[in-house]
Design a protein around this nucleic acid. Structure first.
Lengths: 209, 209
DNA sequence: TGTAAAATGTTGCAAATGCAACATAATTAT
DNA sequence: ATAATTATGTTGCATTTGCAACATTTTACA
């Protein structure tokens, strides 16, 4: 994943963060951080740890909308996190740097010689996020658990360029990502194993086709 | 939806398009335009008509990934359109302006006084697209046809600020958007009508709760 | 190291859904 | 105006899935 400050020296990065009037907050595990944010239009950059954006469904289903790891971005201008049902929880101890969205296009920042790089990085990140959303949509539009699993495995396999890869999720999280019942998913995985399509050892998946 | 050239005079817009080395192509209805694009990293701006990004599933299901209307953006850097299964079809006669992604951050453009506005607009559009993707993900993660329908109706209702609204889709397209069987969807709509939750006249929906 | 908590695995059953195979209505093109 | 195409509506049936209620394994932590 693209780093927002890639190709910017740490000295210039500091300068930039000052110009952007950034602030950094450290959170412990399991905190709902949105209740702590009182900025208007913000971009949050995860510099340490991991966040989960979760939709708390009225049915009691917790839908994992997004997992934001190191260098990841989030913000109200680009997600559903304005929704009341939405919460942003620290999966582990995490550190977040906030900048005001408006500051990004302030003249004094544009004048700096590293501004182009910064904007390029930001655009790249947004593009990556769109791609990742599209990937998830492509998976979610599959109509059966089997097809969802196979589509997701295909994606991981393509990304790694190998028929063997490691799941970045627990099986509970995977079921949430695919938005299917965990038990039904386990059952389907069993069928796929029995029919010789896949082999699973721990979190390691082998595609046998 | 945000216009990429909002708050830029038509004179400056022309200047900008020249600096960006843009080119404009006009398409007739039903053309797969991706096969015509030989730019490396491009942004396409729909200035007239409408495009559909469609995933051609191996099961024969055509999944509508995205519909891009006037002022809409698309590009390989921000979507799944690199996928072989993906095609981009003109829904009607359409006009598309292409710019090279790399040109956006060329020095001679950054120097112009309308550059900030341009970048602001671009960032806003990408944010809007992310929001719209998140909305669709939120809907697709609902586990039943009924919940998908109600979630989608809630969204349309919130956007319009009214319990009465018009569907922007045919029912076939709606079923594709929700990724459910059209017949099963019609059946569920019938149940919702019978149970007094909704009323539907043509494409007009009335929420009765 | 022991214990609580979390993750994983299993299975019967009822309900929801996709599918197929239609009929009918509405729209578009000639 | 009429034919052709597309959109919408209906329903039986087999299959898939969610749900519930468990057992077992693994991990976290006090």
């Amino acid at each position: 994943m693209q780093d927002l400050f890639e190709n910017i020296s740490s000295k210039n990065k500091e300068k930039l963060l000052k110009l952007l009037r950034s602030s950094t907050i450290t959170y412990t595990k399991g905190v709902n951080i949105l209740s702590n944010v009182n900025r208007d239009n913000f971009i949050g950059i995860v510099t340490e740890g991991c966040l989960q954006i979760i939709i708390n469904d009225y049915n009691g289903n917790n839908i994992l909308l997004e997992e934001i790891g190191e260098n990841g971005l989030f913000g109200n201008f680009m997600s559903a996190i304005n929704s009341e049902e939405c919460s942003c929880i620290t999966k582990e101890k995490a550190k977040v740097t906030y900048i005001d969205y408006e500051n990004i296009t302030k003249p004094n920042i544009i004048k700096t010689d590293f501004y182009i790089i910064f904007i390029k990085n930001l655009l790249k990140i947004l593009g990556e996020q769109l791609t990742s959303k599209n990937e998830r949509i492509e998976i979610l539009t599959k109509r059966s658990i089997r097809d969802k699993l196979l589509e997701y495995f295909k994606l991981l396999s393509q990304k790694k360029g190998s028929k063997t890869f490691t799941l970045p999720f627990t099986f509970i999280e995977l079921a949430n990502y695919l938005s299917v019942d965990r038990c039904a998913m386990t059952r389907e995985l069993k069928y796929l194993k029995n029919e010789g399509f896949i082999k699973i050892v721990g979190k390691k998946v082998y595609l046998l086709y």
